[in-house]
């Protein structure tokens, strides 16, 4: 487990969590390491990683961290949705440059925990999570869309 030291965030660094289970409390490994070994339950995805490589291992993963080194790199949103679309039900944690105005989009893409590298104002964040009373697209949060509601029987 050569590259596991200090990789990933600890439960203490998680500011918002929308799950009731106990968080994984050991370090994450890289995507490459998951492919090489069979016992890691936590993994960290970098923007250039292909989230689909993890699909054969979803059953034993309890935590997937998706790193946003810069807020303008949106590849992590696709990674998150791909994992949820494949049936991943474990914790999906956004880490790094997680800003107030990204929270509602991240939540829709399936993230259910957030470890911003700078703590966010709680009030601003609460408002941000509640930005959209309704949504236009089908996404990983499986909310009924505006179009669904328009055509409810």
């Amino acid at each position: 487990m050569g590259d596991t030291q200090n990789l990933g965030t600890s439960p203490d660094e998680v500011q918002f969590r929308f799950r009731d289970d106990e968080p994984v409390d050991h370090a994450a490994v890289t995507v490459d390491s998951v492919l090489d070994q069979t016992n890691a339950a936590a993994v960290r995805i970098e923007p250039g990683d292909d989230a689909r490589l993890l699909l054969p291992f979803l059953d034993r993963l309890a935590l997937v961290e998706v790193n946003f080194p810069v807020f303008g790199d949106g590849r992590g949103y696709s990674a998150a949705r791909i994992l949820r679309e494949a049936g991943y039900t474990g914790e999906l944690r956004a880490v790094g440059a997680v800003l107030i105005d990204l929270l509602s989009h991240m939540r829709r893409c399936g993230f259910d925990s957030f470890a911003p590298d700078k703590r966010l104002d709680e009030e601003d964040a609460a408002r941000a999570f509640a930005t959209w009373a309704n949504v236009y697209q089908r996404a990983a949060d499986r909310r009924a869309t505006i179009a669904d509601k328009r055509h409810e029987a």
């Binding site: 807020f71 303008g72 790199d73 949106g74 949103y77 696709s78 949705r81 509602s104 989009h105 991240m106 829709r108 893409c109 959209w132 949504v135 236009y136 697209q137 996404a139 505006i146 179009a147």
Partner: peptide, 13 residues
């Protein structure tokens, strides 16, 4: 227009 408005995955292309 509706699909692309506030699309959660495609706001930081």
């Amino acid at each position: 227009r509706q699909w692309s408005s506030f699309h959660p995955e495609f706001t930081y292309l």
